[in-house]
Design a protein around this nucleic acid. Structure first.
Lengths: 147, 147
DNA sequence: TATTGTTATACTCTATAACTATA
DNA sequence: TATAGTTATAGAGTATAACAATA
């Protein structure tokens, strides 16, 4: 008697499972960066997502973080208390507040990105041409050829 | 005056960022599966991780979920209440409880895996040979050639 | 003395609803 | 009437510490 036959998986599906496992296995690194920089996870993701060159309304940050507006209020409160972000009234709509990253915030943001964008050693160990192939396939799939 | 020059990123690093973005962007799907199957996220991850063919001690599940033992108690309490998992005394060490997935739990687990292992459409849209290349590169990187 | 798992508790994260000020 | 953001509050998730049983 054989065990239940696994559903036939596409190569994309197998790649997806490996990818998701890799990302999940690296989650502790995010927590380490949070601890080092004294940021709550939400604060870190917010600062990472905010664009120093283009202020965004709070509502867009909420959408990016997959959370409610009311949650963003608290996150920004604490970032503003530390002088990393500023709320500015939007000229076109006085209900809206635009989020501006201060120079101090930009410094911290650069450190966050530097740490978070470092590939896990498993990927760094691939040959350079394999790394490029991997990158190009992902660029193509995600439609970011020019990034 | 130029802006701060971005650090030179390896191809692996760029691939990593794309990969992480993709996984994060799919997080809402996990929440949908949780809602459909009436499972809290922790319960879903626990059931997905548990191996129906090889019972595991609770402490190992806690390590796999990156959380404290005390948290696992509650997760398993609720899975056991629903008849999806059973605690069994370990023969070699009476402190340890082994987690066994019941037939009902195995059914639900199969549905979870089916849903979670479905690749995002961006990956499915790649040509079949590109999908295989992607899969093989990840297999090589993660040392799972035979999986 | 150290470890597995449980209980009790507190803290954080997140969501909901009511509110304001604008549109 | 609808939307952006705030406040208050309640629920879930997670961590810590004290404890029981066992090694």
């Amino acid at each position: 008697m054989t065990s239940i036959a696994p559903a036939r998986r596409s190569a994309a599906s197998e790649a997806w499972v490996l990818m998701a496992d890799l990302v999940v296995s690296q989650r502790h690194r995010t927590m380490c960066v949070c601890a080092e920089l004294d940021l709550a996870p939400g604060q870190l993701h917010a600062l990472k997502w905010l664009d120093p060159e283009s202020p965004k309304p709070m509502r867009e940050l909420a959408a990016a973080l997959n959370c409610d507006n009311s949650n963003v209020t608290g996150i920004i409160d604490r970032l503003e208390d530390r002088g990393l972000v500023e709320r500015r009234p939007a000229p076109h709509d006085r209900r809206v507040k635009m989020l501006v990253v201060t120079p101090k915030g930009q410094e911290l943001r650069a450190r966050i990105k530097e740490r978070m964008e470092q590939a896990p050693e498993q990927l760094e160990r691939l040959d350079p041409d394999e790394q490029r192939t991997l990158r190009d396939l992902l660029r193509k799939a995600l439609g970011r050829d020019g990034d």
